[in-house]
Write a protein that binds this DNA or RNA. Structure first.
Lengths: 220, 220
DNA sequence: ACGAGCCTCCCCCGCACGGGGGAGCCGGAC
DNA sequence: GTCCGGCTCCCCCGTGCGGGGGAGGCTCGT
C-alpha cells in the first residue's frame, strides 16, 4: 500500500507544489490538505495519514503547536515532517523538540522531498545529518564540510554543549563526562538533554551519528 | 600522582621492554611484575595498580582467566590492558568479553603503548577503533581502510549481527530494528549484545563509534 | 547420527538514560 | 537596575538498554 500524506500549509501554491511532486510517485498518495494547523487534528483523525507535511509558520496555529497537539491527542500519530522556507529557521528546532520526525526545505529538489517523505514513513528520523546532506547536495559542496559545519553552527550549541557532545562521541558515559569536566552528573544530563533537543536526536547514539555525519567529529 | 602499572607476562624480556618504555614517562610508574596470571590477584590486592598490562598467553593461568578473576574478586579493580603478539589473536576478544578495557600489540611503537596506558587510566576504553588506528599507523596505511576492514572482519560478526550494527549506526532503537527485520525485540537484544561483546563496546553508542572509526559505515 | 554455529525467543534484573519540572548563580547586554 | 542566557545542581519518574542466564529449531559438515 502507498504512503499517505496530509499537507498542511497556508499557501495554496506550496500545497500544490508538494502535491504535484509527491503524487508523481506511484507509492505516495496525498490524501488531504489543510491551510492551518488548527484544522489538523480532525483531519488526522479522519484520514489517518502516514505522514503529515507541516508548515512551520501559519496564521492561526503554527507548526510547532500543531505538532504538539497531534502527538498529544492522537493515538498512533502520523510521522510529522516540518516544512520551512529558511534553512536557519529556529522554529524548526522547536518543532523537532516538540516531536517532529524530520524537516524539509521548500527549496529542496523534488527528489529530495520524495526521499524525505519515504524515509520518515519507514520510521527513520530525518534528523540533523539528513538536512546536512540535503544542503550539501544542494550547494554542490562535494566534501560537504562547509555546509555541514554551517548546519552544526545552526544548531547553536553552546561551548559546554559542544564539549559534552565531543565526549559523547568518544563513547563516554554521563558519569565519565562528569568526572572529566569536574561537574555533577546532573549537570551533564542537562547538557546532554540540550544537545539532543538542539540536534533533534532521540538519544545519545543519534547525537553521535549526527556528530559524525556533519563532520563535527572526524573518524580516524 | 602518577599512573601505577602492574606488568604480567611470562617473558622477562617483554616485561623489561614494557618497563623501559613506560618508566621513561614521568607520569607513569611500574609498581610490580608477575610472570603468570595465577600470581595476579594477590599482587593487585597489595599494590593496587591503576592499570594491569596483561599478557594473553601464559603457562599456568592465561590472561582471560586472570582478567575474569581480578574483576570478580577485587573491589574497585584496576583497568586491564591485554597484551598480545598477534593482531588476529582471537583470545584478545575473549579477554575483552571478560571485561578487559583495551588491548595492545607487542610490536606497537613505544608512543602508542604509552598512549594506550594513559587512555585506559583515564577511564577510556581502548576499543576496537583504537586498535584499528594503531594498525593503520603501523602499516602506513593512510586511508586505513584495508586495515580497518580486516580488523572488523577479525571481530567475526555474523551476517545478522552486521545487519543489526548497520541499523544501530543509523540511529534505530532495538524496537525499530526488530520491526525492520521482522523479529522480536528479544532477538535484537541478543544480536546487539553479541555485537557489543565482539567489538568490546560497552553500549550501543560505543559500537556505533567503532563502526564509524573502522569504516564499517561511512559518514555522508 | 551427532555436534557446532547461527538465529530465534524467553526470563529476571539493575541501572543508566532521558523527560519534565524547578532553582540559584553569574556575567553581559540593555 | 533589570533582563537574559549559560552553567550548575536538584527532584521525580518511566523505560530502554544491557547482562546473565537458558532453550528450541535450523542448517551444515563430519
Amino acid at each position: 500500500m502507498p504512503v499517505t500524506v496530509l499537507l498542511v500549509d497556508d499557501e495554496p501554491l506550496v500545497r500544490a507544489g508538494l502535491r504535484a511532486v509527491l503524487e508523481a510517485q506511484s507509492d505516495i498518495e496525498v490524501v488531504g490538505e489543510a491551510a492551518d494547523g488548527a484544522a489538523v487534528i480532525p483531519l488526522v483523525r479522519r484520514l489517518r495519514p502516514d505522514v503529515v507535511a507541516m508548515d512551520v509558520r501559519m496564521p492561526l496555529m503554527d507548526g510547532i503547536e500543531a505538532t504538539r497537539a497531534v502527538l498529544r491527542t492522537v493515538e498512533r500519530p502520523p510521522k510529522i515532517v516540518v516544512v520551512t522556507t529558511f534553512e536557519n529557521d529556529e522554529y524548526v528546532y522547536e518543532a523537532l523538540r516538540a516531536g517532529a520526525d524530520g524537516f524539509l526545505l521548500k527549496r529542496a529538489r523534488p527528489a529530495e522531498i520524495v526521499h524525505a517523505v519515504r524515509l520518515v514513513a519507514e520510521g527513520e528520523s530525518l534528523l540533523f545529518p539528513a538536512s546536512v546532506r540535503q544542503l550539501a547536495a544542494q550547494y554542490g559542496d562535494e566534501g560537504g564540510n562547509r555546509a555541514a559545519r554551517a548546519a552544526m553552527e545552526r544548531a547553536q550549541l553552546t561551548e559546554r554543549e559542544a564539549e559534552v557532545l565531543r565526549l559523547m562521541a568518544r563513547g563516554l558515559s554521563n558519569a565519565e563526562i562528569a568526572a572529566r569536566l569536574v561537574v555533577g552528573t546532573e549537570t551533564v544530563k542537562s547538557h546532554v538533554s540540550a544537545v539532543l533537543a538542539k540536534l533533534g536526536a532521540r538519544d545519545r547514539t543519534q547525537a553521535v551519528i549526527a556528530a559524525y555525519e556533519s563532520g563535527f567529529v572526524a573518524p580516524g
